[in-house]
Amino acid sequence: MSQTWAYISNYCIYSAMAVYTLSFFAHAYETAWAVRSPQSEEASSANLLTKTLDYTRTEKVARIATAMMILGFLLLFAGVIARGLSAHRVPWGNMYEFSITGALAFTGAYLGALRKYDLRWLGLLVSIAVLLTLGTAVAVLYRPSAPLVPALKSTWLVIHVSAAIISGGVFLLANVIAAAYLYLDSMESKGPRSAWAQRLPSLEVLDQLSYRLVAFVFPLWTFAVIAGAIWAESAWGRYWGWDPKETWAFITWVAYAAYLHARVTIGWRGRRAAWLCLFAGSTFLFNYIYVNIYGTGKHTYSGL
């Protein structure tokens, strides 16, 4: 019975990867084909822009790209649920499971933000990031579905880990946007934007957007850290022990607090704020990748 669910989960995740790949190609097609080479009469005109953008010809593809992203999200969601059913628990027991749930949260954050902001240009980056995450999960991190070790058997697993994974997804989205900011900023400092990048939002919008995302999840991350401390108190007899995982969660928290401070009280904007945002996000990734795999602390649940 539980084996069946494990198989279903695997198939869902493979299908999700296939669909994300389609979404990736659709996004790539859109980005590339919206650029129209100049017609002869246009080229002779005074218009200095030698290339123009014409979205009407890619609108259909763009819709397909987003639709594929949504389908991928649903399949991945089903995969995560089936994984949980196969083991009769929440699917957050090892690094494979953290990764697939993290990819789910990341796509979810993107799709959620897409409802409010015109973020379709990000789809290319989002689909690459999700494919890389899922690829690594399936190829390197995969472990058969199994019950939890006793220390993980707690309601706090659900609370703490879901808060952490959602925060992570949103932090990473903010990071992708900060990176896009820096890239476009350096492009603009050399002259006008390339044609394909003209559709991307202005620098101010990107700057605001990554700030909003961080400000939005910072309380959730704070909650994740505190929930972890409460759990540690009931499982290990201390709420804070400077275990490597805890230490890096703290570093991430401090880095984002510094980022918010720098923006709200000192008025950092633009490049410096984007670098700080990237730095803070990289502490999160470091915690996830390095500390999970090479760390020696009590948080050795990677299953590797």
Partner: peptide
Amino acid sequence: LILLLMLGVASIPGS
């Protein structure tokens, strides 16, 4: 702000 960042950096070696 500087102290806050220093605290973050100072906790790295211990990890």
